[in-house]
Design a protein around this nucleic acid. Structure first.
Length: 229
DNA sequence: TTGTGATCATCT
DNA sequence: AGATGATCACAA
């Protein structure tokens, strides 16, 4: 693996690289890319994701669009436990409070990112030292009609509340597969939002983000074990 | 400040 | 144990 991986030109090229990563240890990938391995993830929470993206040829960036815009593909690492089940929810995107009123699912950032995802499972059991954790077989995925309907409904219900200025009433319990939780530097963080009553009044609210529930991503992973159907 | 990458730390 | 709410680092 070169220290700097060029951007893949096609999905096939991206998949080839992902398949070559399967079975590799994080420490080996980090060494090949000449990046240090942190002692733990407490102060490097995004390290695994950034490492995998770099190894696949994605540029850093923090724009609200898929990792490979020209391919329309988003890369998501998925921390899995000893059973192979996702340990955490999957962050999808931040929610733009001020644009909630006119937002539509069809043109949303969430849909753009979830239209095509390359899931990369990574061992995350606490018993395995970070450099020894292995990368799993990547799974290219697009939501089927049922999944998209679920995502869309959750998205629309949440965005309606936000557009009405009721974002503070949103709980993590809401949403069948797509939930909304805080996405901020701290609980004191605030962002501006139109209050939605037609008056130009603004209110400061906690920044929120969309997250996929672990049960939803677990179902996607299970497709790996049912490839013959 | 907002968005990216997420995992941490409690609570039920 | 599983999930929710809180938090960490970095780039533009």
């Amino acid at each position: 693996m070169p220290v700097a991986v060029p951007r893949p030109r096609t999905e096939e090229e991206l998949l080839r690289r992902a398949r070559m990563l399967a079975g590799a240890r994080l420490g080996d990938v980090a060494a090949a890319l000449q990046r240090p391995v942190p002692s733990d993830l407490r102060r490097a929470k995004g390290w695994v994701g950034e490492l995998i993206e770099t190894a696949l040829g994605a540029s850093a960036g923090s724009r609200p669009e898929p990792d490979f815009p020209e391919l329309g593909i988003e890369v998501k690492t998925l921390p899995v436990d000893a059973r192979g089940a996702p340990k955490e929810s999957t962050h999808v995107c931040a929610i733009s409070m001020r644009e909630a009123a006119g937002a539509r699912w069809e043109t949303s950032v969430a849909r753009a990112k979830l239209a095509r995802v390359l899931w990369v499972p990574v061992e995350a059991a606490a018993a395995i030292a970070l450099p020894m954790r292995r990368i799993g077989q990547a799974i290219p995925w697009s939501p089927d009609a049922r999944e998209e309907a679920l995502l869309r409904r959750d998205w629309e219900e949440h965005m309606e509340l936000i557009a009405l200025g009721r974002s503070a009433q949103i709980r993590g319990e809401m949403g069948a597969v797509l939930q909304v939780r805080p996405k901020a530097a701290s609980g004191r963080a605030r962002t501006m939002v139109d209050d939605g009553d037609g008056v130009d009044v603004r209110a400061a609210v906690l920044p929120l983000g969309f997250y996929l529930r672990p049960q939803f991503t677990a179902a996607i992973l299970s497709q790996l074990y049912a490839p013959l159907r």
